[in-house]
Design a protein around this nucleic acid. Structure first.
Lengths: 225, 225
DNA sequence: TTGTCATATGACAGTAGTGTCATATGCAAA
DNA sequence: TTTGCATATGACACTACTGTCATATGACAA
């Protein structure tokens, strides 16, 4: 956590520092970023930096808190309606929300994206600690987002009962990642906002039919409501 | 490419340097690794290092060549039989081969794993160049590995014709990655060589039925050979 | 023996960064 | 006006690194 001094700063100065920090983290990644660059870009003296922050990790933590705050603007509405969604719709909406975030706030998005790189021990430890805190602060857990939807879909018979909740939970995150990356890759390649839509549709299609293999029309009679 | 001097070195000395380099890259990752550490660990004077290599990237390139050589020992037999496999068997076998490699040669594996992190521009550029070269050297391309199997499976009607080869190709890599990571994660967690097997089975199951949705018994008659 | 060439060596200059500290500033209270 | 406190400042000492270069070594060829 930054020191109180930082929070006492006038809004504008705080913003300047945060912006400079985000740009540095976005372009260089955590490992290669330097405090030196950040203080030059935000034009604060070296001594002041240490008046505000313990060190680079401390600043980075605050940046991540800000980024999460921003991302939540896009994600929150989807999560709040998770009971209404089946798993597949939920996943689709979450990926879409993520992409929306990435397009509206590319610098913040870039920093978050860089996180999945950088597998230093320090960084892994930080991420674990950070995730716990973030989810707590937002009154959710990574699991809780999907849990309701999975049980929902299982209950409705959309998902074959051969799969355990645990198993599905394990895939969900990884597949979300893949979908996001593919979508993003398509976007970058074709410069078309909806270029990646069919990716989502196809992946969700595969998932839906793959997970429901038992319940397809014809395999079991009278299962279509 | 390292300088000729390096290749003129006695086998043993070359090995020592490569081992030290791999260990450094494995533990620190490319960005945070240092030449200094490597020359201390392999006990060669600083000047000699630059007699052998242009710089860190040069050494890293050679390390990657070595790692690929080692990994190929596990992958090659599978690739050579790709015409026999359907896409799903091929993927399964490739993931298994990858895991086998990771268990037999953890340091090399760790370096390769770290690669998918480190998204510096330099690193991305290097990877593209490197991949091209490696695949050339081994007379394959990333696509060619899966292409035959995909066409195979499409031809046999195992995959719904609604999906283009292009689309399937795009997923394949990402899904392979996810499977590998999940398998590996399970292995680490349960210390059981076959703990991840059901992950593979489940994911392949989902993929198989998801991709073949049109062709399931009952949807179209007389399609089972 | 002497010359030549490849290679070995480590001191060195230079760069980029970190965290600290003595001192300065400015405001508000006594 | 004086004192005290929070904050500001940048010089400084330190560390970790990189790439180069003048010089040393050793083997082989003339």
């Amino acid at each position: 956590m930054p020191k109180q001094t930082f929070f006492n700063l006038p809004e504008e100065k705080r913003q300047t520092i945060m912006r400079a920090a985000m740009e540095e983290f976005a372009s260089a990644g955590y490992d290669l970023s330097s405090i030196q660059k950040i203080i030059k870009a935000s034009d604060i003296p070296r001594g002041s930096f240490y008046q505000y922050f313990e060190n680079k990790a401390d600043l980075f933590g605050e940046v991540m808190v800000e980024i999460t705050r921003r991302k939540m603007v896009y994600i929150r509405p989807v999560i709040d309606r998770d009971a209404e969604y089946g798993l597949f719709e939920l996943m689709k909406e979450l990926v879409k929300a993520g992409v929306e975030f990435g397009m509206c706030d590319p610098i913040a998005f870039q920093v978050a994206k860089g996180l999945s790189s950088s597998k230093t021990l320090d960084m892994v430890a930080f991420l674990n600690e950070y995730k716990k805190e973030i989810y707590q602060r937002n009154h959710i857990t990574e699991e809780s987002i999907y849990l309701a939807a999975i049980q929902n879909s299982l209950g409705r018979g959309e998902i074959d009962s051969r799969f355990s909740v645990e198993t599905i939970l394990a895939y969900t995150g990884k597949i979300m990642e893949s979908m996001g990356e593919l979508y993003w890759h398509h976007l970058a390649e074709y410069h078309d906002v909806h270029a990646g839509d069919h990716i989502l549709d196809d992946m969700i299609h595969i998932l839906r039919y793959g997970l429901s293999s038992n319940n397809l029309p014809g395999k079991e009679a009278g299962n279509h409501d």
